[in-house]
């Protein structure tokens, strides 16, 4: 599969948040504030690209040759935790300004299902290394795009008056539904 196609499809048509429902917890809970949402989005994009590539390497050079395919889930989650830890230390040490903007989100990311999801999907779709890189990058950007957009829409909610008993989560789900409907419009262009 063409890498540009993968990049495009993972950002728009197969958006990780709106088509596969991954990373819903932060998507609902922290999309109220655009600043916070963009910090989280950046952190997710970065971690997603790195972990997808790392897990591809681990899977193809360690797990498969040793016949440890059944350990995949466990090893993937450990790799993710390790990378997040290292990333946190490196960013804190060398890029303090960047750490200010999204450092606090890094520990949360270990249990973000979108990160593990990408690694699993990458195996299910048997992507090559380069394809995995672009798939991780595209999915990260796609998630970033989705959370920024929903953050922007939720900001406008103060001008309207949804039924009170929807609560924060209910109305966010409805907005996400409308967004997912809009994203389906891209399906004809390319899909994974």
């Amino acid at each position: 599969m063409n890498i540009l196609l993968i990049l495009f499809a993972s950002i728009l048509t197969s958006n990780i948040a709106l088509t596969y429902f991954l990373g819903m917890c932060p998507f609902v809970s922290i999309s109220k504030n655009i600043q916070v949402a963009s910090g989280m989005g950046m952190a997710v994009t970065m971690v997603m690209t790195l972990t997808a590539v790392a897990n591809w390497l681990v899977n193809n050079y360690v797990l498969i040759p040793l016949g440890l395919g059944y350990m995949q889930f466990l090893v993937f989650i450990v790799t993710i935790a390790a990378i997040v830890q290292i990333l946190e230390i490196v960013i804190d040490r060398f890029f303090p300004a960047l750490y200010q903007s999204f450092g606090i989100f890094l520990p949360l990311i270990t249990v973000n299902c979108a990160i593990l999801g990408i690694s699993l999907f990458m195996v299910l779709r048997s992507f090559g290394l380069l394809q995995t890189f672009f798939y991780g990058l595209g999915s990260g950007i796609g998630w970033f795009l989705a959370i920024i957009t929903i953050g922007g829409i939720r900001k406008r909610l103060i001008f309207s008056k949804p039924p009170r008993r929807f609560g924060e989560t209910g109305i966010t789900a409805i907005i996400a539904g409308l967004m997912a409907l809009a994203f389906i419009g891209f399906t004809g262009v390319a899909s994974l």
């Binding site: 929807f166 209910g170 539904g177 409308l178 409907l181």
Partner: peptide, 23 residues
């Protein structure tokens, strides 16, 4: 997918109403 979001949103509304839950 869009239907999933709509259904979840509406069920949250219904359950909150049954509970008389004040958000």
């Amino acid at each position: 997918p869009p239907g999933a979001f709509f259904t979840l949103g509406v069920f949250i509304l219904i359950i909150n109403t049954i509970r008389g839950h004040k958000e």
